[in-house]
Design a protein around this nucleic acid. Sequence first.
DNA 1: GTCTATACTTGGATAGAC
DNA 2: GTCTATCCAAGTATAGAC
Lengths: 214, 214
Amino acid sequence: MPEARISTPKARGEETRARIVEAAIETLKREGFGGASARAIARTGGFNQALVFYHFGSVRELLLAALDETSARRMARYREVVDGAGNLQELIAAATEVYREDLASGHIKVLAEMIAGASSMPELGPEIVRRIEPWIDFATDAIARVSATLPFPVPVPPEDAAFGIVALFLGVELLTHLEGDGIRSDRLFELGSQLAAMAALLFGTLPASGKGGE
Amino acid sequence: MPEARISTPKARGEETRARIVEAAIETLKREGFGGASARAIARTGGFNQALVFYHFGSVRELLLAALDETSARRMARYREVVDGAGNLQELIAAATEVYREDLASGHIKVLAEMIAGASSMPELGPEIVRRIEPWIDFATDAIARVSATLPFPVPVPPEDAAFGIVALFLGVELLTHLEGDGIRSDRLFELGSQLAAMAALLFGTLPASGKGGE
DNA sequence: GTCTATACTTGGATAGAC
DNA sequence: GTCTATCCAAGTATAGAC
């Protein structure tokens, strides 16, 4: 019971805004970019279509707000899990776990739909780029961090690996939601962990310096 | 059957069909799934919008025909290049080369747009799945083939790796066209070759089941 | 802030003339 | 086979009542 007043006008407005964003995320997940019209979103959230324009000005702005919201939520979650990882295997295990959540929750679906949708709405491009960069940076940092724990110099520039990982996640998302089940992505992540374990074992037992690359 | 005429009605029809498919591919590349309306496609190809429905019945069918066409072309090209690869490095080099062509030519863009677009047109899903399977099979075969040339047993199931590669290509496509340049994907593929070379070198000199490769 | 009504636009699709 | 004309559905967006 926070306040004497039931709800200030301002609070009500904010609440509606949030409901609309929520409905937009939901609609993007279920019906994709092409299906995320003001009307469809309003139907999903059970509110009036005109509210989209009152609160956000345009569908475009709403979709970006939706991307911001889901992105912020997932970033918080990724940090929580990934920051606890102290070495390569733990990082892969952590990323796998959170990514599985994402496949289920649909966050990456929203991202992938927005990226693909930007083709038919070019003004969206730069906005989306700005919202992806933090993810690549995040991955870069995580990779750099665990790279430093390996007993040998890593010949992989973290930013390149990060780009690859983000791309891989997006691609797996596309294929997984297309095929309905998540069997193939499960197997892929399984494989990732195995290889990581193998690599660590293998490299870990090699003379760290002396037989290196270049 | 007489055929010495300059153009039979039938041939003209086929020719138009081809023009329409071409325009559909072009429009999918440039404007994405959302921008690929019958009208936009007709504008691209300089023909009448009603022809789409006369020849294909619906936009949906046309888009699938477009996917078939670009897919067939690229598959031919991939086979040409990839079948010549006898070992892992050659395979990666070949894949990199053809994939670079794809980024420029837009074939994978068409595929990615169709996959993402399927979210708002669910009937498209199964059709697209059917059209992706040959690509995963193709990648599986290529990987299995070069795996057999390695001087040690490979702990990577070819079909899992194939799924990963196809996903990676799709994801890189999304990000690359979004950011406009291809710098990051260039670096990624560069990295891939380096790692492949390193792995071959490293594993090749390990006591596997004897000293295999060269 | 929210709803109803509506103006305007674009797109899928068909009929019928050529 | 191709084009013009047209219908209808759906979408964006705004005005104005509540």
